[in-house]
């Protein structure tokens, strides 16, 4: 027992030094290891290293596409300017498909921090050379064109639905095969199990560079670094999707509190440390804040609701 006590005291001394009141607590509504968790922890590092905040804690609340974390955040953090939550486009879909009682309208969005284009790719030996070929094959027989991508109702699924709709094909007829995790979908594409694949561009780029896959298009309105694949828009399909990640503050803040949080995040996003961290992780800087972000968010929620209804995932 005595030894335990001494060890405990030693630990206490070790731990007590840097630990003052936390300036920010960032909720990552996902398990440790995923994208939102990585975003939260990168923010934690940069906020502390740049001296914007003395102490930042990350709290993981995983589950149901982030909606469990969101619900807990809205209930527990209301009016508390030290609480932040990380989220992303996936949440928009998850809120709808899970019929979540809490939505993004219940938090105070601060800024979009980073984002990635969704890429459409085929195996290198596929006869389909362009996105036009793929769409025509789908028009001829939608069932015969199988798509491998991420979870049902996620950003990949939504993008295929939007593409079908833009091309005048019935979105309920797409043969979308959901895989858990990017790895399995990628293996299905490389193994020639499916016609085409759809996933984050970063996931396909190493394969494209190695010559095992061919990128047919990217989903953003501008071309994506690292690939010369055309955008869907320049190929004639009116689709613009970015799989973004954002940070939001608690509901019920005063305008002053909200401005203070926004200023801290802006300082973070402008810092050299943040740029360096983005470069290491291979994330694109798609910072967008204030009114512009709020308007963009509202537009996306509307478009997503419509497409999820079209593909039959939301009644």
């Amino acid at each position: 027992m005595m030894r335990h006590a001494i060890f405990g005291a030693a630990l206490a001394a070790l731990a007590a030094a840097p630990a003052w009141a936390a300036d920010y607590t960032i909720v990552a509504p996902a398990a440790p290891g995923g994208g939102w968790d990585a975003t939260a922890r990168t923010m934690q590092e940069v906020l502390q290293a740049e001296g914007i905040s003395g102490s930042v804690q990350v709290q993981n609340v995983p589950g149901a596409g982030g909606t469990i974390g969101l619900a807990q955040f809205v209930a527990g953090a209301a009016g508390d300017p030290t609480q932040l939550i990380v989220g992303g486009y996936v949440m928009v879909g998850a809120i709808l498909t899970n019929a979540s009682p809490v939505t993004l309208a219940d938090v105070t969005p601060i800024a979009r921090l980073t984002g990635e284009a969704v890429g459409i790719a085929v195996k290198a030996d596929s006869p389909l050379q362009t996105i036009g070929d793929l769409v025509e094959a789908m028009r001829a027989d939608p069932g015969a064109v199988s798509w491998a991508g991420g979870s049902a109702g996620g950003v990949d699924h939504i993008t295929v639905g939007l593409l079908a709709k833009a091309a005048g094909i019935d979105p309920t007829k797409i043969n979308y095969i959901a895989f858990s995790g990017g790895g399995e979908a990628l293996a299905a594409i490389l193994g020639g199990q499916v016609t085409a694949g759809i996933s984050g561009v970063g996931e396909f780029l190493p394969q494209v560079q190695a010559g095992t896959m061919r990128m047919l298009a990217v989903s953003t309105d501008v071309r994506w670094p690292g690939t010369d694949a055309p955008t869907l828009m320049e190929s004639g399909y009116d689709v613009n999707v970015q799989n973004w990640r954002m940070v939001a503050a608690a509901p019920g803040l005063t305008p002053e509190q909200q401005a203070a949080v926004a200023a801290d995040i802006e300082r973070m996003a402008g810092s050299a440390g943040w740029k360096a961290a983005l470069a290491t992780r291979g994330w694109a800087d798609t910072y967008l804040a204030g009114e512009a972000f709020a308007a963009q968010l509202a537009r996306e929620i509307e478009a997503t609701t419509a497409i999820l209804k079209d593909v039959g995932l939301v009644q």
């Binding site: 589950g63 149901a64 049902a152 109702g153 858990s180 995932l313």
Partner: peptide, 20 residues
């Protein structure tokens, strides 16, 4: 929990913790 292929919730009876 949620069916991995269609996103359909099964046997969760509206309890969010059961969705996963």
């Amino acid at each position: 929990g949620i069916d991995g292929l269609t996103g359909q919730a099964r046997l969760s009876y509206g309890v969010p913790q059961l969705l996963d």
